[in-house]
Design a protein around this nucleic acid. Sequence first.
DNA 1: CGGGCTATGAAAACCGGTTTAGTATCTCTA
DNA 2: TAGAGATACTAAACCGGTTTTCATAGCCCG
Lengths: 348, 348
Amino acid sequence: MRDMKNGTKRPTIKDIARESGYSKTAVSFAFNDPGRISEKARDQILLTAERLGYIPDPMARNFSLQRHLSIGFLLPQMVQYSLKNPYTLEVIAGIGAVCEKMGYTLTIIPPLHKSLALAVRNAAVDGLITLGSQIDGDIITVMQTRLLPFVMIDGPADEATSSVHIAEEEAAYTQMKAALDYGHRSIAIIGLASATFAIEQESQSVAAKRMQGYHRALGEVGLHFDDVNCLVSECTLEDGRRTAARLLAQKTLPTCVVTMSDIVAIGCITAFREAGVAVPDQISVVGFDNIEEAMTITPALTTIDQPAAEKGKLGAKTLFSIIEGRQEEPVHHQIEYRLVLRDSLKQL
Amino acid sequence: MRDMKNGTKRPTIKDIARESGYSKTAVSFAFNDPGRISEKARDQILLTAERLGYIPDPMARNFSLQRHLSIGFLLPQMVQYSLKNPYTLEVIAGIGAVCEKMGYTLTIIPPLHKSLALAVRNAAVDGLITLGSQIDGDIITVMQTRLLPFVMIDGPADEATSSVHIAEEEAAYTQMKAALDYGHRSIAIIGLASATFAIEQESQSVAAKRMQGYHRALGEVGLHFDDVNCLVSECTLEDGRRTAARLLAQKTLPTCVVTMSDIVAIGCITAFREAGVAVPDQISVVGFDNIEEAMTITPALTTIDQPAAEKGKLGAKTLFSIIEGRQEEPVHHQIEYRLVLRDSLKQL
DNA sequence: CGGGCTATGAAAACCGGTTTAGTATCTCTA
DNA sequence: TAGAGATACTAAACCGGTTTTCATAGCCCG
């Protein structure tokens, strides 16, 4: 009997076959289809496996079965940004909950050598979920070439791509309208990093659609982008604070700051507080997302609620239905948003 | 020429070999070791690959190379709990940042059929990071049997296991002492779900070590567990609120609540606020972890700072050094904690 | 002009499982 | 008692790459 106990290498199915006196096939059956062999053989094999410390190699198994038992989540930005954004994290949690139910793992895929397309090329997953607008043609090409099922959340999805999203333009319109309805006319907008203030462009990006909504709401009271203070911030608490500092450095403060993200809004509130500027008495702040913290901060944040966890769940469910072949045609889930009025927006 | 464009299956290396007139070997070289073949052959092959939409199968490649290019993070609890805990998320972000740098993906591993050990058996990863005390012998046995490198964060690590942690007993002592130093004698403790109030047991779990620290601090002012109100909460905002409700339902309120987790502390604060109980004027609250929100909530939370992201980074770095064979002996990183005094703890 | 070296590429083994196809034996039935 | 069918098992093919080993041709050099 070959001494394998202290060998540096793990025993394989072949070792168990040899040691137990049965064939590879029999060993495989013992683990995967016990009824297929005799009780005696099964016991022999399982005992041998136990004795040698044999555990079937998951990768070999997955490879043979042509599956991964994992779906991928494509990080919209570098890890240090993405995984600090509570909205993103809530989406991930939603995806994760479905994965758990399905017996899959969830692979977080950061850019590889700064390239998301490269990361997708190498991703060992059964399907992908993307979040946000940073998804360019290269990435889509790779996914399609690999025949990798994918679902876009908040992304620039065309007709052929399954997606989950809210009515961005309308939601942004609603958000801005709330500020205007409360009497605010001196307004600052803090957009996402990818936002552009050239309304003409036909971009499918979330930021662009929201800008269109802002534009429409402002137009209804006779305002234009030229009349508002337009800034841009990374989607992090820190950068929200920095952006608020930029506002504070200007001569005149707006009466209301409309942001595209709660995390930025919260950054602003803390920065204002530290600068001795009272929210909402001196300045109102409106957020977007309704993350959990929007409720706990003082003052509680007026914001647009979009069910992030629900988005993640729906995205994951959709992906699994494609993976399992239950879904042939692309689907586009539009889910509900909702204005949540809290203390951070003050009636003028 | 075989028509492959609209076939339902992806082309393999064999197809490219046949179509280009070269061998599998040559195709492999074209992608991985271009200098090994002639320029002409390389161009031919790459062109053919492009034309047929060939991308090497990552799983086959990884299988052949006996690697995964992914490390696993073992979720301490069910997804819906784990991924709602900011502390856990910060640790994950730290791990993720290192993964990104190393060109690895991060696989989130939820329990499989309620079993973490089973999930570990099947995990397709090069190594594992665990968090918390829920790691039992079965899980460790599987990791060892699979010869899977692993690092424990906040875990019950023995000498043979690489780990990252703070001095739990001492940190808890410091936390409790702060409350006592501020004059509090009527105290409630809200422990982690796994906490037990039988101080005698020699458990290695975080909760047990912290209880020992509490016990020591209380003892110094002549108090004992019998004199304090001991509760237990899941590590979620929601359960924190429920636990606060249980406190509120009792006849007498303590003057100070000492929790093992910021997220629970914040849940308590919001519950107290909603019940009209002023923090810290009527009741003080002390947290543990110093998550980002501890600073933004009103009143700002007095807590023990432990650098979660740093823990994740250090854990991941350690794991990679084991995977790459640079680290033979197990290492135990003990990192610094720090008491952060803020408004939620009031001098009596 | 023969021996050795380099450049180029193909054949076959290998990674560790699963599965198909097939064989030998035993049991039941007509 | 022959044939059909079930049972228990094995050999070999397969998943799609990488890598080792080997073959051939061309070249340089003494």
